[in-house]
Design a protein around this nucleic acid. Structure first.
Length: 210
DNA sequence: CTCTGGATTAGCT
DNA sequence: GCTAATCCAGAGC
């Protein structure tokens, strides 16, 4: 797809604005479900519907990277809502977050899974698989499929490299709320949201009981 | 400076 | 169920 293709102009016109990203983080985590995240590459467009998110809120949230205060790594979380926070973990994976709330308050929404919509063949190439059900059903898989790495850390979602748009058709779905995945602290907070029944939600083991 | 372990995944048992 | 893969932030010295 070319930069000025009708599809891209259409997509850009529906971009979420900063007002959306300045709302309370839990509201954004819930409302991002069903929205379309768009990644612009050299001459291609990748797009997917967000189906699973998690909220990480403030210096008092023990699972949040900003727990205990600002550092070189987490400083992007302190920017105003509408930036991208991308971090590297486990020696081989990236995870993508949407920074939320006003400048100075560290909070973000982790995109845990999306449903592929556009550029699926390219995603298969980046993920080195032909299994559509295994392309973007996890935070690091999504980053690999969408060519997201630390170069996008701090990028503005109001610009064109990566951004989120309103879906064209309004579908209804049921939202489920559970504790977050893969953390050892903060399990008391039910800050993970996903679309019930969507096949692209990440596969997770049952939540262990305390 | 060194050391530890993580908002994960794939592949094997 | 288990663990290797493998980078870097953060903590401790």
């Amino acid at each position: 797809m070319k930069y000025n293709s009708p599809e891209l102009i259409f997509l850009n016109g529906k971009k979420l604005n900063q007002k959306f990203y300045l709302q309370p983080t839990l509201k954004i985590a819930r409302e991002l479900l069903g929205k379309i995240i768009v990644r612009r590459l050299e001459d291609k467009i990748l797009a997917g519907k967000i189906v699973e998110t998690e909220a990480y809120i403030g210096e008092d949230d023990p699972a949040c990277h900003a727990y205990g205060g600002i550092t070189p790594r987490n400083k992007v979380m302190y920017l105003s809502g509408g930036h991208a926070y991308v971090y590297f973990t486990y020696g081989m994976h990236y995870c993508f977050n949407v920074v939320t709330e006003k400048e100075g308050f560290p909070a973000a929404v982790l995109i845990r899974a999306v449903e592929p919509i556009m550029g699926i063949e390219l995603m298969k190439k980046f993920r080195n698989t032909n299994d559509i059900n295994n392309l973007t059903n996890g935070p690091a898989k999504f980053c690999q499929a969408f060519q997201i790495d630390k170069r996008l850390n701090g990028a503005s979602l109001l610009e064109d490299e990566i951004f989120i748009i309103e879906p064209t058709n309004t579908e209804t779905f049921k939202i489920v709320r559970t504790p977050r995945i893969g953390i050892k602290q903060g399990l008391d907070k039910k800050w993970r949201f996903f679309i019930l029944g969507n096949p692209f939600v990440s596969k997770t083991k049952p939540t262990p009981k305390p």
